[in-house]
Write a protein that binds this DNA or RNA. Structure first.
Lengths: 243, 243
DNA sequence: TCGCCCGTGTGACTTATATCACGGAACCGC
DNA sequence: GCGGTTCCGTGATATAAGTCACACGGGCGA
């Protein structure tokens, strides 16, 4: 573990891609915090062999990010692979005109498949990753991902399972955009969301939902109202409570 | 190479998923045909090391499929990974009510990432793979994919590049469904299609395009007519000529 | 406390897409 | 050539979704 304590990404949420796309990270050492090594040991015991956990402790970078902080932006280069310890991360695909489509969520012990192969040929990332809530994660340098594949069977398994899951997620996303109508999509969206954050009260604006579903605020407001009338949820400012 | 000559999949195109989902394959030996070993050597020289090519020759299964033949259907189990030597394969995602969304095409030396991890947990495939034209390919048993990763660096590279490409394809698909209007989508569809078959005359019906784009025949007819008026293409029965 | 901004609710309207209905043209087997 | 079948073109109409306009209310800072 090269850095102990929390690392804060200073840039906050912002939907304009024109300002500087680089994410600046400040590391601050911390004493008296949770011992990272122990956290990691606990998280991976059972999944990975001890030697691998040891390696992760040595070379991984532990970070904590707050809700709304950006991990990856389109235009940046991916040099390491995140593994989520707790919390959840939202992976999105922005288009040219300010919309973004939700690709999938990452949570407990998930990893992002897109980043596994890095950004080859000096092609920058085309996706956005943003924390949904306070999230703890470990970054594994990309060379290690490759190296460990042959050294640790459980790692190879992990990498392949990650790919598999992300593919399934993406197919589910395509399904939903291609075949479902907006009201059904909204329902599956809300379900996914509650599952990823493991709570029934979502802190979110209609505007944000609309952006993630690549539609407009008014239609989301109407559909939500409809769902409220049916008794599926309760609405208030910045808050949606699922019943 | 365990089987020489062509293998024909007897079931023909059919859009009803209810009949038996298994794909039955008859192998027939062939003399006087192209020597498979030489074909394979030629295809992979430069990309793979000789020892790997040797392995592929020993354990791969060579097949030729005709246009419209199915390689994978939803409900079947994936036990081997195809590598396309020539021709092209279309990967689609069907929904419950007879529609199917196009995920991506595979052509020269591509492989299908979804199949790489097989269908784990005894979960059957959720996709459809159908030949776009006469296609020659090699099936690699799924255990080998795994085994070779550590033995052959070029294979590892190949596997990762395959994942990367398919991810990019899927993201492009999501982009197009989520953000583009139908006329733009039709254009990108036609472009992809011509690229994958490397020709300017498409043998296809409006009905089929509609199904792949998860819309209805009439709207495609209208949009195509519009593109013809603009001078982008010329229409005739079962044929679209791009200008 | 006043004004302002943000998030929301909603009516009126436009546009895009889907569906229905039908007719005609091309092709195919006999 | 003839009848049937598949494919294509097109109008009329219905529905879903997007856009515009505006009003309301709560929170919050001056």
């Amino acid at each position: 573990m090269r850095f102990s304590g929390s690392a804060r990404i200073t840039e906050k949420k912002c939907h304009n891609g024109n300002d500087q796309p680089e994410v600046r990270v400040e590391y601050k050492t911390a004493r008296g915090m949770i011992n990272d090594t122990q956290v990691i040991n606990a998280a991976f015991r059972g999944s990975f062999e001890p030697a691998l956990i040891e390696e992760i402790n040595r070379t991984g970078i532990y970070q904590e990010v707050e809700e709304g902080e950006y991990l990856i932006r389109p235009g940046s280069y991916i040099r390491s692979v995140p593994i989520i310890l707790s919390g959840s991360i939202k992976i999105m695909r922005p288009d040219a005109s300010g919309n973004e489509a939700l690709l999938y969520y990452l949570s407990g012990l998930d990893s992002c498949a897109i980043s596994m192969t890095g950004t080859p040929d000096n092609k920058p990332s085309e996706i956005t990753a943003v924390a949904e809530e306070k999230t703890r994660l470990i970054f594994i340098p990309i060379e290690k991902v490759d190296e460990w594949i042959c050294r640790f069977p459980t790692w190879k398994q992990f990498v392949f399972r990650t790919y598999q899951r992300r593919f399934d997620d993406m197919i589910a996303t395509i399904d939903s955009i291609a075949f479902q109508k907006l009201d059904e999509r909204l329902l599956t969206y809300l379900k996914k969301k509650t599952r990823s954050c493991q709570c029934t009260v979502l802190q979110i604006t209609h505007e944000e939902i609309a952006r993630e579903m690549a539609t407009s605020r008014e239609v989301i407001s109407r559909l939500l109202k409809q769902l409220e009338r049916v008794g599926y949820l309760r609405l208030s400012r910045n808050k949606i409570e699922i019943l």
